[in-house]
Design a binder for these strands. Structure first.
Lengths: 367, 367
DNA sequence: CTGAAAGCGCTAACAA
DNA sequence: TTGTTAGCGCTTTCAG
């Protein structure tokens, strides 16, 4: 017996690397288990019509060799990559890692892999990232990016890749959107403040060009009016959903006279920036001024003081996003995929809100 | 002209979905550009020996049809998936997203995709996650997880998948290790404190079973001795690298009499937990007690007060991890991959450190 | 320099 | 129920 690989088939071509490490493929298993490769495939994929005896033989060999099927090959022939894309704005905003976690968990539980990519609001990165998703043949993409260039979506739409958006997305087939109930949470926030006695409530928005930021701002305006307070344009400062942006916006607000007694922020990072600016200025929260955030990122709870904020559940969003994608992937004519998913929000009262300055003693007497 | 797809090849089998959307593969391009599929492949892959005329014809068609090559097929035949795995402990620790970002950037720039997975310290998740990496045929894995079950690695090692670890990894072929210079940064921290006049410096460690936590603790002990201070075991509290763990550890330290005048923490999350606990207790930082963190996560800068911490660059780690993996993947006998990479650390002084309580006035006079 | 053809590892007809 | 076989879309010999 020589070392020459005795290929059964026409070995007219190169036999590849002769010293190639023992590759274990479905064929090897078949040979060792004395069945056909089809049986191996069926066994591994849990087809129930396989004779238990054969199936056991197959499993034994699979375990003995630690066989792991090649997903690439599987995807190629079945046409299903079992990969879902997840595009986010910036991974450094703690909101997103929490979302990724949730999405990954549910996807993996359902046999999908995820391809995450953050765009940092850079259109070129975005474009590159869509290209990568296309190359890897993702079966769907969750675009959790608070704003996107429409033309890029055509790339995906043209190839009929299902998509889910947050807040706002093109109204086309295969596209779902997660409707966040901004108004509910923000109304609770404003009402909470109003109930405490605040009338001068400022707002630090996100970037005006983002839909999600606009929705939050609109919710603030509406809620103010519902409380019988006319929102003042000078009390609305534009931030950019970052720590630094929050600080800068608060700085502008600080120039106001009289100073607002409370400020609601478009997200938690902004609120933390605000808190920090206030700390720098020497103003006490909540004694001098109350602050409310939005998102309820984990760290909000350990701020000094712990941040009152509107919670938007990452787990809910992740779950809804996954379900939306899945229902498209598995959609049939008789069971079309729903277009909209509701995501609730809810105020979490902690310690960054209190009575407006000057009224505390007064109100305390009442209690 | 009927709608019947006129297949050239033997159509003895099912012609798939007859209404399948116009798939654009390399063959379509070849037909339209009037060249062979081999030429299309060569053109797309930038083989220089292709006649410019043909190559232009190919590119024109590619652009016209928006052709995107199928990575799965490519991977299957070439044996190179161009996927790198990245395993982290918990994505909710802000340290990791920043690392992911850096790793993704450099990987994508070099034509790799990354498969991220967080284990949450759960061995079962870890096992599942390695399995997934194997299935997707990753070309290398960065295990940035501060502690791992050795047996699981065999799965990867057996298949000769290159790996990089942080701090500490098995000493085998194909495995590199990123040596973080904990001692440098922590010595700077302790010296900074000692220079300020502190002699009673506590330490909140990470979980004792993690190598990285032990290394940090060892660095603290050594640095203390270098400053002529004998570390006291009661001044060392075990945390778990989370916000909550930091708070709990500080609580234990608070029972000490006398109270330490400073506390060094094994990571920033821990330090923030400590800061929060101190805030709850009414102790002022740094007037009553100084606090130092480790990692320099972004948010450290806006704590109240801004956290003095030891910086460990995510970008450096990401870059080193990628280089380590790449050098293995592309290793030749003449150019073997290096086994170790150094990662520097450095103290960033902010405002959570000051003179020990009671000495402030005294020292101020001097200045 | 170009094209024909042999698979990569697997699934899914279809035949037995 | 099991086995045989034709590809999935691409890269890569090898012959021309």
């Amino acid at each position: 017996m020589t070392a020459r690989p005795a290929k059964k088939k026409t070995a007219t071509r190169t036999p590849r690397q002769p010293d190639r490490p023992e590759r274990t493929d479905i064929r090897t298993i078949a040979r060792l288990a004395n069945v056909s490769i089809a049986t191996v495939s069926r066994t591994i994929n849990g087809v129930t019509t396989v004779d238990p005896k054969l199936s056991k033989r197959v499993w034994d060999v699979v375990e003995k060799l630690d066989f792991v099927p090649n997903t690439q090959a599987r995807a190629l022939v079945s046409g299903r990559s079992k990969i879902l894309g997840l595009i986010i704005s910036e991974i450094t905003n703690p909101f997103f890692p929490e979302l990724i976690q949730g999405f990954e968990d549910i996807a993996v539980d359902n046999g999908y892999e995820i391809l995450v990519s953050s765009t940092n609001h850079d259109p070129q990165r975005m474009s590159h990232c869509i290209r990568r998703m296309l190359e890897r043949k993702v079966e769907g993409v969750a675009i959790m990016t608070f704003g996107i260039e429409e033309p890029l979506l055509d790339q995906l739409a043209k190839r009929k890749v299902p998509m889910v958006f947050i807040d706002h997305g093109p109204d086309r087939a295969g596209i779902s959107v997660l409707k966040i109930d901004y108004h509910h949470g923000i109304r609770q926030a404003v009402q909470h403040l109003a109930a405490l006695g605040h009338r001068s409530i400022a707002f630090v928005s996100g970037p005006h060009h983002l839909h999600s930021a606009q929705s939050r701002l609109a919710a603030y305006n509406k809620s103010m009016q519902e409380c019988g307070i006319q929102p003042l344009s000078e009390q609305i400062a534009e931030g950019d959903h970052t720590l630094e942006g929050g600080g800068a916006a608060m700085e502008k607000l600080l120039a106001l006279n009289p100073l607002p007694t409370a400020v609601v922020c478009s997200n938690d990072l902004t609120a933390i920036g605000v808190l920090h600016k206030l700390y720098r200025t020497g103003l006490k929260v909540p004694d001098d001024i109350s602050v409310i955030g939005f998102d309820d990122i984990h760290i909000a709870e350990v701020m000094m003081p712990p941040l009152t904020t509107v919670q938007m559940s990452r787990a809910d969003i992740a779950k809804a996003a996954f379900e939306a994608l899945r229902s498209h992937v598995e959609a049939t004519d008789s069971k079309p995929a729903p277009r909209e998913y509701k995501v609730p929000t809810q105020l979490i009262v902690r310690e960054s809100t209190g009575f407006p300055r000057g009224t505390m003693t007064h109100l305390r007497k009442k209690t």
